[in-house]
Design a protein around this nucleic acid. Sequence first.
DNA 1: AACATTTACGCAAACGTTTGTTCTTTTATT
DNA 2: AATAAAAGAACAAACGTTTGCGTAAATGTT
Lengths: 340, 340
Amino acid sequence: MAREKQVTITDIARSLNTTVSTVSRALSNHPSIGVEMKKKVEEAARKLNYRPNVLAANLRRGNTKTIGMIVPLINRHFFANVIAGVDEVLHREGYNLLICQTSESLQREKEVIENLIQNRIEGIVMSLSKESFVSNHIKKVLDYGIPLVQFDRVSADLDVNKVVNDNFNGSYGAVSHLIEQGCRRIAHFGGMFPINIYSERLRGYKQALADSGLNFDNSLIFENVLTQEDGYALTINLLQSDSCPDGLFSASDMSALGALLAVNKYGSTLKKHLRIAGYANEPFTEFTCPSLTSVEQHSVEMGRAAATMLLDEINHSSAERIHKTVTIPAQLFIRNSSLK
Amino acid sequence: MAREKQVTITDIARSLNTTVSTVSRALSNHPSIGVEMKKKVEEAARKLNYRPNVLAANLRRGNTKTIGMIVPLINRHFFANVIAGVDEVLHREGYNLLICQTSESLQREKEVIENLIQNRIEGIVMSLSKESFVSNHIKKVLDYGIPLVQFDRVSADLDVNKVVNDNFNGSYGAVSHLIEQGCRRIAHFGGMFPINIYSERLRGYKQALADSGLNFDNSLIFENVLTQEDGYALTINLLQSDSCPDGLFSASDMSALGALLAVNKYGSTLKKHLRIAGYANEPFTEFTCPSLTSVEQHSVEMGRAAATMLLDEINHSSAERIHKTVTIPAQLFIRNSSLK
DNA sequence: AACATTTACGCAAACGTTTGTTCTTTTATT
DNA sequence: AATAAAAGAACAAACGTTTGCGTAAATGTT
């Protein structure tokens, strides 16, 4: 508000008895300005403590060098790492990153999208909130001609650039591993199945069972068990039931952790055991007792890939582009929780 | 680049045979515009798929509603949480957050500061990189009249708003706890001592020893032992020495974890034991074997406090302000690693 | 009925740049 | 020495808003 008068190129021009156009070109090292004039301008700029106003520049030339990023929660390990990957390649190319979090709310997602458009960001990389089953608000981005790449939680019904973890194979590998370890009744703690990542993990789970000739028991599949608490409570139930499973593949490390703690606490007294595998390879999985088998998603790499795709679309904006889906391989980290 | 012609208030004005000023005021619900005109403008805006160009608006009215945030690493648990806290209060007040990471490089820190100034952010909340022992580049921010609040790693020699964890008391409490548990020779794994947080933790450590009448052994203090690897290697050395300590207070959970793993592996064969406490209360501390005693820093709360201070300075910009330091209490989480 | 006030809107300048065009001076070409 | 070309710099418009001021018509006051 009470910002003291900015010093502008007009001030520089006046101090040198020249014009703004000359100063502007001098500062951007334009060839048609003499080397002597450039020196003088640079010195005057320094002396006056001048800072270019990039708002004005952006307005004039019609591009902000910034791209918008939308994540459900900024401080989740996974998202923070994707952000880091995105920032890495974007910063290298001179772009700024405007980061917004939706807090898993569709309403907020709509708001931040509007906000980003109005801020004239040049592209968006985003992951959907848990409530985002519709995609009208995403279409607005496309209608406005803004390059978009979705990552992780993506819109199944939208033809846009996407980068996703190979949830199917990640899941398939984890479940196959449990089977190899002797599991015959494997439970699955999933997320909300309409969301692509969770449906894919479920699909991988089913396929692995099928390919091993194990029959599939719907009563062993649980939707929306993603937290430590839910995993803990549900596992206690399972351990007490007569048809207790002997393995668990969880779509979330948190609920896998809950399960692990439940087994630690009640397993021996109930004479039941569960071999467990989780998903996401959260930092703690290495240190639990026993250590937790999990699937690494290479989140930083996902961020890099997303940013690279976006930049590519921004730079080679051939009218109608073909939208690709980049799949980042999943990697199973076998630890003690799943071993015999 | 090939951005299709923007639709502007000029287009709206033309479509209604009125002027841009009327449209502008109508859109911002100015009282001197008739209700009927407002309706027409809003409808035309919707019909034309108009989005205000906030760049232009910002340029004109001389304020961007965005503040800059500078962190060493965006995907560290601690920083990600502070960011979340900052974003929470800033978003609530209608501000955008431009986040930059320095990757612990002073050079990058200088660059992003310049960049933020040039983007005319209205304030900065930042934590220093590990290389930032000088503060000329920070002074530029102040010289330019930009409200600044530093958090966590702050400049000792600068009179600015700060919010810091109570590192002294956090450390003091942890060491006192170790002493209560019977430790008599307590080692300290520290960071780089010129950095305020690490010097404070060292100070708390020394004070706790002194207050318990324990004598202080310089050979038990180690600078810059912050990683799991360093903690692990160093602890093995300690376990093998004849003057092995019986306790360890680490300024980092990572090196505390390394120590814990080293003790797990070699403690029994070497017939040595260490009670351990770390700092930061990283998510994994709860799940290690044994679980790791640590000090919680309330990172989200730090972020909220920092943002609140910043907003306060922005809004009540009385020419010369008194700069405060807000101290967030530390909280000791006692777990098994430190118990007898 | 004459004037004052209010309501609703138009005019034009300003924010700080960038950039196409024009103009003057210097240097090269013949 | 006359002319063409190149170099260096100035002019002015434009980017899309906001906002102070002016003004016509409508309403209120006496």
